[in-house]
Write a protein that binds this DNA or RNA. Structure first.
Lengths: 238, 238
DNA sequence: GTCTATATATGGATAGAC
DNA sequence: GTCTATCCATATATAGAC
C-alpha cells in the first residue's frame, strides 16, 4: 500500500501523493518543503544519471548533490528506479510537443527551421536531460520501450502524414518522412549527447551560444536545401 | 606503475604481453588458447558494455557470455577498465580511416556518399561497437578524452581543410566543415545507437538490410542535395 | 517529516589448489 | 595456464531514534 508512489506526480504536474496531505501542506501554502526537495532531487538526479548512467549513479551521489541525506531521497522516491522514471518523464514532456509545428497548412521551411531551433535550444539548455534519454535508448530502452512503441510511434506516423502532404503539394522533395525525422533528431541531439566530442574537435572548453548558433545555421541550411523542393530550379509548383 | 598494461596490445595487433612468452605459445603455433580466449572475451565485452554501460556491466556477466570463469577474465585483462579500453581501441580502429576518402582531388559527391555508406555499414554490422563508443562519449569520455583532443581533432581539422578546398573549387556550398562532419557522424551512428527507437518507430522487430538501404538512400540524398553546389542552378563555377 | 546507523546484497579482484 | 573459494569494498534500502 502506501509504498507505491506514482512516478508522474513528480513531473511538475500538481498531482500530490496522498501522504502529502498529512500535515502542513494545503491551502495556506505548505508542502513547499516536499515540492522543493523533490525538485532538487530531480535536478540532481538528472545531472548524475547523465554523467554516470543508471547503474553508475548512486543514490548517495544524487542525495549529496541535492544536499540532502540519502535516506531522505528514499523517502521521496522509494527506489532509484522510481527516481529515474521521474527524470525520464520530465525529458519526454520537454520534447513531446515540439513536433506539433508540423501541420499541413504551414510552410514546411518555417516549421522545420523552428523545430531545429527548438530542439537545439533544449540541447543547449538541458543537455543532461538529452543525455539521460540517450543513455536509456542506448541500453535498449528498458524503461521507455512501451512508450516508444505506442505513443512515439503514433506521433511520428501522424507527422509523417503531414510531411507526405507537403511532398504531394510539391513543397518538399520526395523522401521517407520517418527517416527524415530520425535525421532531424540525430543532428540536433548530437550537440547535447556528444558534447564532449564536439568540444574536443572545436577546441572549446565549453560550447558557447555562438557555437549553437553556428550549428543551427549549418543544420538548417543543410536540411532545408536537402529536403525542400528547390524554388529556383524548375520543379512543378501547384 | 607496472600495473599499467597497454590497451593496444589486445586490439588484434600482434603485440603480445610479456607474460605470454612463458610457456607454450611461439613458433610451433601455440598461444591459440590465449588468442581465442582474448577474442571471445573482447566480443562478449563489446556486447555487455553496449547493453549495460561500463558500470552496469559485470565481469561475471562478461565471463559468462564468453563461457569462461570469471577469474580467467581477470587473468587476461587485469581489470574491468583494461578490458573496456581494449574494446574501445577496437572501435576506434574500426572507424579511424573511413574519413581518408576525403581528398582534394576526389569528387566530393562520391567521397561523401562512400563515407555515409561505410559508416552505415558499421552501424549495421557492429552496432555494439558504436554503442560502446557512444556511451563513452555520453558520459564525458573519461577514457578517450585525450584521444579526442589530440588525434581526432587533428584528423577533423585536416579533413575540414579538404572540404574547404572543395568549397573553394565551387563543388560544395559554403558551410562549416566541422559541423558538416558532426552531421555526418550524427545521422549515420544514429541507426546503431538509437536502434531501439528506430525499430519502435518503424515497427520492426529487427532492422533489416532493406531498412539500412532506405536510410542510406535518404541520408545520401539529403546530404548531397544539401551540401553540394547544385549543378543546374546558376552558381559561379570556376 | 528528518536523519543516523545498519542489514543485506552484489561485484571486483585475488589467493592458492590443481 | 585454469578455476574454486573467498576477501573486501561499495551500494541499495530500511529500521527506528529524533
Amino acid at each position: 500500500m502506501a509504498r507505491q508512489r506514482d512516478a508522474k506526480n513528480t513531473a511538475s504536474s500538481g498531482g500530490k501523493s496522498p501522504r502529502t496531505l498529512t500535515r502542513k501542506n494545503n491551502a495556506n501554502g505548505r508542502g513547499h518543503i516536499r515540492e522543493s526537495n523533490e525538485l532538487r532531487l530531480l535536478q540532481a538526479a538528472e545531472t548524475v544519471f547523465a554523467e554516470r548512467g543508471f547503474s553508475g549513479a548512486t543514490t548517495a551521489g544524487i542525495a549529496a548533490r541535492a544536499k540532502l541525506p540519502k535516506a531522505n531521497l528514499h523517502y521521496y522516491f522509494r527506489t532509484k528506479a522510481e527516481l529515474y522514471r521521474a527524470v525520464l518523464a520530465n525529458v519526454l514532456e520537454l520534447w513531446l510537443d515540439e513536433l506539433d509545428r508540423f501541420t499541413p497548412d504551414r510552410d514546411p521551411s518555417e516549421a522545420i527551421a523552428e523545430y531545429i531551433a527548438a530542439k537545439l535550444k533544449w540541447s543547449r539548455l538541458r543537455p543532461n536531460a538529452s543525455k539521460v534519454f540517450a543513455n536509456e535508448i542506448l541500453h535498449g530502452a528498458p524503461f521507455v520501450k512501451p512508450y516508444l512503441e505506442r505513443d512515439l510511434r503514433r506521433r511520428v506516423e501522424d507527422k509523417a502524414g503531414v510531411v507526405r502532404e507537403w511532398i504531394d503539394q510539391g513543397k518538399m522533395r520526395p523522401l521517407d518522412p520517418r527517416h527524415f525525422v530520425f535525421q532531424l533528431w540525430a543532428v540536433t541531439q548530437h550537440y547535447a549527447d556528444f558534447e564532449v566530442q564536439v568540444r574536443a574537435v572545436l577546441g572549446r572548453r565549453r560550447l558557447t551560444e555562438r557555437d549553437f548558433a553556428d550549428a543551427a545555421a549549418n543544420i538548417t541550411r543543410l536540411i532545408l536545401q536537402g529536403a525542400l523542393a528547390s524554388p529556383p530550379s524548375g520543379r512543378i509548383r501547384k
